[in-house]
Design a protein around this nucleic acid. Structure first.
Lengths: 139, 139
DNA sequence: CTGCGCTATTCCCTAGCGGGAATAACGGAC
DNA sequence: GTCCGTTATTCCCGCTAGGGAATAGCGCAG
């Protein structure tokens, strides 16, 4: 299996959280602009990979996804965002490359902040189901 | 297009929320037990349809999904839940039927409560992105 | 001018999800 | 007994997301 970035998220593109009993309240967040998906966990992951590697191809490889797919995601983000999140250069030094705009960096920061709050939420709400599905059934 | 139940959720199986500018913070919740999906929006919807119709086949029809799929979902829920959520009868009056157990009813109630809180969360957090993606770009 | 590594773009192919149809078994109503 | 509508189960099929490979174009380094 190809190398995937080491991240704290769980399977798929969601977050999970719970205390015990094999019980888990999981969730997923994304941001839409005019009905089009703008940001998601996967997309933020991609932005970070691009930021760290400086190119779409390297980012795609490190995420274990196809370049084509990564390119489509970035293209889609730039298209539907009010201001572009990445800036791409074709040809030149090193063949070109891709870097984040200020908005791209800010998007990552904001999204992470919301995710952190989301995890707090999940942790808190999960307990609502403990007595129903946890170790000791009550209902 | 087949008839679908009138519900307040958005496309797919998530919830959405935001104030303005075509910007929307959307999300999705589900509950896992030992790594297996136990409840989700779609599954709660199915439970409610079963509760209201008294049969899997009618519930499937009203949701616009295949009976086979509905059956699989319910089977999966019963398998992975500590206590069964539905009780099924083969043959007999009216050919049989399916009804919710007490745990099934409680699952619906709890899930809706969490969803309500989730919507509050989404509404609040969405504002974090308004100045980044909203009407007046600032970054 | 040549080479290189990247962006950009196309085509094919696969796996999985889920619809749709067909069938059997069941058991009360009649 | 027959009829009926349900649960239960199987097989086939189409759609879509996404991987993989191949190719062209670009522009600086050398």
């Amino acid at each position: 299996m190809a190398y995937h970035r080491n991240r704290k998220h769980v399977d798929g593109d969601g977050w999970a959280s719970c205390a015990a009993s094999g019980l888990r309240l999981a969730g997923r967040l994304w941001i839409e602009c005019d009905g089009q998906t703008l940001l998601s966990w996967k997309r933020i992951d991609l932005l970070e990979c691009v930021r760290d590697s400086g190119s779409i191809s390297l980012a795609a490889r490190s995420m274990g996804i196809a370049y084509r797919h990564a390119w489509e995601l970035l293209e889609d983000m730039n298209q539907h965002s009010r201001q572009p999140l990445v800036e791409r250069v074709v040809g030149g030094k090193g063949g070109g490359g891709t870097r984040l705009t200020a908005a791209g960096h800010e998007a990552i920061r904001r999204f992470h902040a919301v995710v952190q709050q989301f995890n707090v939420f999940l942790e808190a709400e999960c307990s609502e189901f403990l007595d129903l599905f946890g170790k000791r059934p009550e209902v």
